[in-house]
């Protein structure tokens, strides 16, 4: 069976930045326990080592730049943008670079984002981001299905 990691990241007290962790908490109950689900405030280098042991990695984050609530999904690869490494927290692309450079292995990796509306201190998602939650969960579950990682398929492998 393929090994998969889901990481929802963002600050849980910065309004819509909590989108990633919120999705991860809900997915934890919806996916098979063999799929590793993590939450964190930001991506740090140690995650590269965990990624190197995976076949599929799914990042879930919020974003800026579009209308609030807009969902974006893309497959990601390594990045040559050196400036991505200049803060405590890394981007998914730079983690892919760490993973490939240090461990010689690259999982298939995807990022799901939703555009946030408010990042002020708050423990609530705004309405447009809240509305995106079920749609992103559905898309993530569909992606897992495509990789033979639906709950039923994982159970049949067990």
């Amino acid at each position: 069976m393929k090994r998969a990691l889901i990481i929802g990241f963002g600050s849980e007290i910065r309004g819509d930045d909590a989108f990633g962790p919120q999705i991860a908490y809900q997915l934890e109950d919806l996916v098979h326990p063999a799929i590793q689900v993590e939450t964190c405030q930001g991506l740090t280098p140690d995650i590269a080592l965990t990624m190197s042991e995976m076949d599929l990695v799914i990042f879930i984050d919020c974003a800026v730049g579009h209308e609030p609530g807009v969902i974006n999904h893309k497959e990601i690869h390594t990045s040559d943008d050196k400036s991505l490494s200049m803060v405590h927290f890394l981007s998914p692309e730079s983690l892919m670079t760490w993973c490939g450079s240090l461990y010689g292995k690259l999982p298939e990796a995807h990022v799901f984002t939703v555009t946030g509306k408010c990042y002020e201190i708050s423990d609530n998602l705004t309405e447009p981001v809240q509305q995106a939650v079920p749609r992103v969960i559905e898309q993530v579950l569909n992606l897992l299905d495509e990789h033979g990682l639906s709950k039923q398929e994982v159970l049949s492998h067990a």
Partner: peptide
């Protein structure tokens, strides 16, 4: 220094 850890890291901080 950890000046504002609750900040959302945008992934890129040019100098």
């Amino acid at each position: 220094p950890c000046l504002s850890c609750a900040t959302h890291a945008m992934g890129k901080m040019p100098l």
